[in-house]
């Protein structure tokens, strides 16, 4: 079944990949290892999982504003998500997405996108196959 969700483009672009869903917010500074792309925050639902090349689906960012730079650094090392889909994007993730040129959409019902589904982000649309 193909489902199309329409949100708001934070950074317009096009990318397709497997979804990685987090029910909890993600803090990139201190929460994600910039040299491996692995979530390292203790007790986080994604702890130990690699976000590289995935469509990262999460409610919102959290933590230090240095997180924007960490997103950029992940991208430079080919460890960034292919795209990001959020319920409500805040400035940390928004600026990181633009700096790193990662297609990013928010104001989407993220519960409709389970881990492992194949997702295409295109402009303000999120297409789930």
């Amino acid at each position: 079944m193909r489902v199309v969700l329409t949100g708001r483009a934070i950074k317009a672009g096009h990318a397709s990949a497997m979804a990685l869903f987090s029910p909890e917010p993600i803090g990139f500074y201190g929460g994600v290892d910039p040299d491996s792309g692995i979530v390292v925050e203790r007790g986080h639902p994604l702890e130990g999982q690699c976000i590289a090349g995935k469509v990262l689906v999460f409610p919102r960012g959290k933590g230090s504003t240095v997180g924007s730079y960490i997103i950029y650094r992940l991208k430079r090392r080919n460890l960034a998500p292919a795209a990001m889909v959020l319920a409500e994007c805040e400035p940390i993730v928004a600026l990181g997405a633009i700096m790193a040129e990662i297609p990013t959409v928010d104001k989407v019902r993220i519960e409709a996108i389970p881990t492992g589904s194949f997702v295409t982000v295109c402009g303000e649309e999120v297409i789930i196959e």
């Binding site: 910039p34 504003t65 240095v66 730079y69 960490i70 950029y72 650094r73 430079r76 700096m99």
Partner: peptide, 15 residues
């Protein structure tokens, strides 16, 4: 703001 290397680190410098 965001000038101290102790704060923005290598990632900030690269950007």
């Amino acid at each position: 703001s965001g000038v101290s290397y102790a704060n923005i680190g290598e990632a900030g410098l690269e950007f």
